[in-house]
Nucleic acid binder design. Structure first.
Lengths: 245, 245
DNA sequence: TTGGTTATTGATCAAATCGTGAATTTAGCG
DNA sequence: CGCTAAATTCACGATTTGATCAATAACCAA
């Protein structure tokens, strides 16, 4: 049975000298001890990200990660204390960045529309940063996204803490929708977000079903096909749901 | 590492006398050896269903299931050969029934509408059987649904085989949508289904986020609130996406 | 060079896990 | 009743897993 979840403060349990990444300068210098350390940490996280996204958190052992990253298992404990630490580090590495990008896109649009946002523009701003990264972010981001999809539709590890990293952008999204649809009821907007989230999540999850169903006419990771359709879909949905009485 | 996935034919690997449920009569007789056997199997599956839906497949051990079902671990091997067998049995127990119900609902509507289906009616027919069971199917069905949500947004065990149990109803759904929207393009209907599926899946997954986001104004399992909104949402979305040029 | 700190490895432990085969109970049948 | 086969328990072995500790390698500063 999974040991009692202790999502908070896994890091404090560490007994070995903690790596102090804080003091390191922002330069991605290719030499030096600190740089090397950072590189191995990244390699470990890349391996963990990929394996976790495929097999789920409990389906991957510390040894699996160490093998794939080509380091000793003890090194994982040295850098991340324990398995929880690795998992959290994997999520935190990208969560902040993507949320910030969404926030930025929404703010940009809020400015550009001159106080008169419309649903389609809002939805597009909210969705685009993710699709952009799905297309150009390399395999790493796609693994991360699949992992998020896994965590999002379950209460597996990190269920509590990590999801909150995305909350601020969601609140901003709803705030803008309120401006665009002043007559819509509060709860309807929240349900609308829930539906957006579900469709988006499935888009980047590891789920090939549509390929079989459509007999190859749709490819599951054809993000260029998905993005515009999802924007139209959500726009129409929100307008419909926002018109409820 | 998760042992090499062998989703197909886990049952054949069994080395002990297979339980022959085929010959059993349909009566749910409360006495007799076969009946007792069936009851314990059901208890095992109930336990497994609940645990799997919470912790994922790799997060649950055979012992966990045995403890909760209050039987010996060896009995699980006797009835289901191994962990894969239990997992598949959990899914198969309900997958056929829910798919058949959906099929029936779609057929009923196709008849009732007199050859002139409209999007809203189709969507409602497709969604209703699930929501009905989410409300009245007892905790067991809700566990099953959460497990499906988990499997649907990942490629964990059963990813290949089991999902296909739902395919026939989906094909029927799309067939009807084609009638309702003769000008829509094929691929757009498939993408539409994908978006429906995503939103629906998130609805019955174990994901409380909306409760925090809405500061308690929406409850994640308030299916009476979700169903009508989801119908409106999907109807509007499909119409929009079907009007693409 | 030397010495100290950090990063990394190798060997190993205790606990947990899956699975098995022998033993025991239970139910039906002549 | 007594026999047989199915259902269930008991005890155990092999392997895996997360984690630790001492020992070594890499780096850097004096």
């Amino acid at each position: 049975m999974p040991k009692p979840r202790r999502v908070t403060d896994t890091r404090s349990g560490r007994r070995k000298p903690p790596p102090r990444r804080a003091a390191a300068d922002a330069t991605t210098a290719a030499s030096g001890k600190a740089a090397r350390s950072r590189r191995t940490q990244a390699r470990i996280l890349d391996a963990a990200e990929e394996l976790f996204s495929h097999h789920g958190i409990y389906g991957v052992s510390i040894r699996d990660i160490a093998d794939r990253a080509d380091v000793d298992t003890a090194l994982l404990h040295y850098h991340f204390a324990n398995k929880d630490g690795i998992y959290e580090a994997v999520l935190l590495r990208r969560a902040g960045e993507i949320n910030a990008a969404r926030m930025q896109a929404l703010d940009d649009y809020a400015l550009a529309c001159g106080g008169k946002p419309d649903v389609e523009g809002i939805v597009r701003a909210y969705l685009h940063p993710v699709f952009e990264r799905l297309r150009n972010g390399g395999r790493g981001f796609n693994n991360f996204a699949a992992l998020i999809a896994l965590a999002n539709n379950s209460e597996l590890w990190g269920g509590g803490t990590v999801k909150e990293y995305f909350d601020s952008a969601v609140q901003r999204l709803i705030e803008l929708l309120r401006l665009a649809l002043p007559k819509a009821r509060e709860v309807d907007l929240y349900w609308g977000y829930q539906f957006i989230s579900g469709a988006l999540t499935l888009s980047y999850s590891r789920n090939d079903r549509i390929e079989g169903l459509s007999r190859g006419r749709c490819r599951a990771n054809d993000y260029a096909a998905i993005e515009p359709r999802l924007v139209e879909w959500c726009t129409a949905g929100i307008r419909a749901i926002g018109a409820r009485r």
